[in-house]
C-alpha cells in the first residue's frame, strides 16, 4: 500500500533582503545577492519554495592573524596584505557571491587604524570588486560607532550589509543604515530572547523589515555548534510559524570561527593521528559550513576556496534532490 507523504504546510515566510545595488538602483555593483524569501526549512523544496538558495561571501581582513596556519594563507599568499587585491581574487578566481570586509585592524587593541585609513581601504575594495559588499566592524563598540557613519556615507547607494548591531549598541549603526539605505546585521550572543529583543528595538527605530539580517553568533563544529544550530532552528520555526519579528534571513561566520579551532590550527607534528593538517582544517571549515546550511543559514562567510568548493557541491546536490 502506498504511504502518503506527510508534508508540513507553513503559514509564514522569511523576509527577502537584497544586498548590493546595480547602476539602475543607484549603486555600482554588477549584481544583487538576495537572501531569504523561503517558506520552508532548509532544502525541503517539497514543502515550500526556496527562491534564493544560500550564498557564500568570502571574508577579507585588513590585518592577518599571525596564528593562521599555512593551509589558510597559501591560496592568498600573493594578496594577503592587500584587501583590495585579495577581494578581487575572491571575486575573479573563486567566484564569491559577495565580499565581507572585516575591519579587524581598526580595533584599538590591534592596529587602531584611523577612520580615514579605514575609509581608504573600504574605497579600494569597492573599486576592486563589483560584487555586493558586507562591512563587518572591528568589534569595539566605541570604535565601530566612529567608523560606521563614515563608511556608510562612503558606500552610500551600494546597499551593503553592515554590522554588527548588538542589544547594547545598535542606535548609531541603525540610524546610519536607515539614512544611507544599507542593510543591518543584528547580532545576539547565542540567545534567542536577545535576538528577538534586538529585532524589536531595530523595528522601533523604524529599520525596514526587509533590511535586517540575523547573526545569532557562530559556535563552530566542536565548540558550541549545537547551540547555534538549535537557536537557528527555533528562530526559523518561529518565522515559518508566522512570527514576523523572527522572520529574517540568517548569516553565519564560518571563516574565522572554524579556523580558530584547535582542529584547524594544530600542526601535524602535535597531532599525527589526526591526519594531514591542511585537509583537516579545510574539512573543518566545510563541515561547519554544511552544518549551518542545515540549521537555516541564508549566507555563509567563509575563507578557504577548497572548503567553499565542497560546500557549494553539497548545496547543489541538496537543492537538486
Amino acid at each position: 500500500m502506498p504511504v502518503a507523504k506527510l508534508l508540513e504546510k507553513w503559514t509564514g515566510s522569511v523576509n527577502e533582503v537584497a544586498i548590493g545595488a546595480t547602476a539602475s538602483e543607484g549603486g555600482t555593483r554588477s549584481k544583487v545577492v538576495k537572501l531569504g524569501g523561503q517558506n520552508t526549512l532548509p532544502f525541503l523544496t517539497e514543502e515550500g519554495t526556496i527562491p534564493n538558495p544560500p550564498s557564500i561571501a568570502m571574508e577579507v581582513v585588513d590585518m592577518v592573524n599571525p596564528e593562521w596556519p599555512s593551509a589558510l594563507t597559501e591560496p592568498f599568499k600573493d594578496v594577503i596584505n592587500n584587501p583590495a587585491k585579495w577581494a578581487k581574487k575572491c571575486q575573479d578566481e573563486y567566484k564569491a557571491d559577495a565580499i565581507c570586509l572585516r575591519l579587524v585592524g581598526a580595533h584599538p587593541e590591534n592596529k587602531n587604524t584611523s577612520v580615514a585609513d579605514v575609509i581608504k581601504t573600504v574605497q579600494e575594495v569597492k573599486s576592486a570588486v563589483s560584487i555586493p559588499m558586507i562591512i563587518w566592524g572591528c568589534g569595539s563598540a566605541e570604535k565601530d560607532n566612529q567608523l560606521f557613519p563614515a563608511i556608510s556615507q562612503a558606500l552610500k547607494g551600494e546597499r551593503c550589509l553592515m554590522g554588527t548591531a548588538t542589544q547594547d549598541n545598535y542606535k548609531v549603526l541603525a540610524a546610519t543604515c536607515i539614512a544611507d539605505g544599507h542593510n543591518i546585521i543584528a547580532e545576539s550572543p547565542l540567545d534567542i530572547n536577545i535576538c528577538k529583543q534586538l529585532n524589536i528595538l531595530l523595528l522601533d527605530m523604524e529599520m525596514p523589515s526587509n533590511r535586517i539580517v540575523i547573526f545569532p553568533s557562530t559556535g563552530p563544529l566542536g565548540y558550541g555548534f549545537e547551540y547555534s544550530y538549535s537557536i537557528m532552528e527555533r528562530t526559523r520555526l518561529a518565522a515559518l510559524g508566522g512570527d514576523k519579528t523572527m522572520a529574517y534571513p540568517m548569516i553565519a561566520v564560518v571563516s574565522n570561527e572554524s579556523w580558530k579551532t584547535k582542529e584547524a590550527k594544530a600542526p601535524e607534528s602535535d597531532m599525527p593521528m589526526w591526519g594531514k593538517a591542511a585537509e583537516r582544517a579545510i574539512m573543518w571549515e566545510a563541515t561547519t559550513a554544511i552544518g549551518f546550511l542545515l540549521g537555516g543559514s541564508d549566507m555563509l562567510i567563509m575563507y578557504h576556496p577548497k572548503a567553499i568548493e565542497l560546500t557549494r557541491k553539497y548545496m547543489q546536490q541538496m537543492m537538486k534532490t
Binding site: N193, I194, K196, Q197, L201, R234, D243, K244, T245, M246
Partner: peptide
C-alpha cells in the same frame, strides 16, 4: 506559544 523577549508585549503586536 511564542519566543520570549523583554518587550514581548510590543513584540506580540508587531508579530501579528
Amino acid at each position: 506559544k511564542f519566543i520570549y523577549c523583554d518587550s514581548y508585549l510590543t513584540a506580540y503586536m508587531k508579530a501579528l
